[in-house]
């Protein structure tokens, strides 16, 4: 079935470290996206015309562009056009953060907009400051509302990192290809075993995240 190649030399270890590259890129991008997404989403909910228009253009642009085109644009495009020399990993973190920020800001805007004005007012009426109102009343509700969709976005981001091999990053899928190539003669069936393992690795990571989210959702059901 082609699984035996994984036990040759350090192949399994290489595959795992490829997964770590994919996870590192997605994790950093997710963190950046959360920070900027929350900031942008909060700005958007102020409903200032200029911010609304600008953020809409940004959001639509990111949504229309295939992630691969964005990757090429940032990695190959900017190096030539702007003379910036960035590593492939930096380029992918930029692209994934741009994407994540756009989607996350829309989630934040939606969650904020769904909170009735009386939630703020009844908190103020109890003598709470604006800061206390956000910390104890509004933000906990926003996190609960956003959780399922954010987890969905995060797993999508992790899965989409498989594209970064197109700009030369050796992540799990690329390592898999290399292993298959190197063992073409000795294990002609390697493709199945290796790709099935890659599939499993992605599955395990995304499954753990989604289980964690299910657990929180259950805990917060109220």
């Amino acid at each position: 079935m082609g699984f035996e190649v994984l036990f040759k030399g350090s192949n399994m270890l290489r595959l795992l470290s490829g997964m770590l590259v994919a996870l590192r890129i997605s994790l950093i991008s997710v963190l950046i996206s959360i920070v900027f997404g929350v900031a942008l989403g909060s700005l958007m909910s102020l409903k200032k015309p200029a911010i609304t228009v600008a953020s809409k253009i940004y959001l639509e642009f990111i949504r229309i562009m295939p992630q691969m085109v964005l990757l090429f644009l940032v990695y190959f495009g900017t190096t030539k056009a702007l003379g910036i020399n960035m590593s492939a990993e930096t380029a992918s973190i930029i692209v994934f953060s741009l994407w994540g920020t756009a989607e996350m800001s829309d989630l934040v805007r939606g969650a904020l907009g769904g909170i009735p004005a009386i939630q703020y007012e009844s908190s103020y009426s109890l003598g709470m400051t604006t800061f206390q109102t956000y910390v104890y009343v509004i933000i906990p509700q926003i996190i609960r509302r956003m959780l399922p969709l954010s987890i969905n976005l995060i797993t999508r981001m992790i899965k989409t990192t498989s594209l970064v091999m197109m700009i030369g990053i050796v992540e799990v899928l690329k390592v898999g290809q290399q292993i298959i190539e190197a063992n073409r003669k000795s294990s002609p069936n390697a493709a199945f075993g290796v790709y099935a393992t890659v599939f499993l690795l992605y599955f395990v990571v995304c499954y753990v995240i989604s289980m964690f989210s299910k657990h929180l959702e259950k805990k917060w059901k109220n």
Binding site: I118, S123, Q141, R144, N222
Partner: peptide
């Protein structure tokens, strides 16, 4: 009138 209580 309503929505006073903090749902969480």
């Amino acid at each position: 009138q309503s929505y006073d209580l903090f749902p969480h």
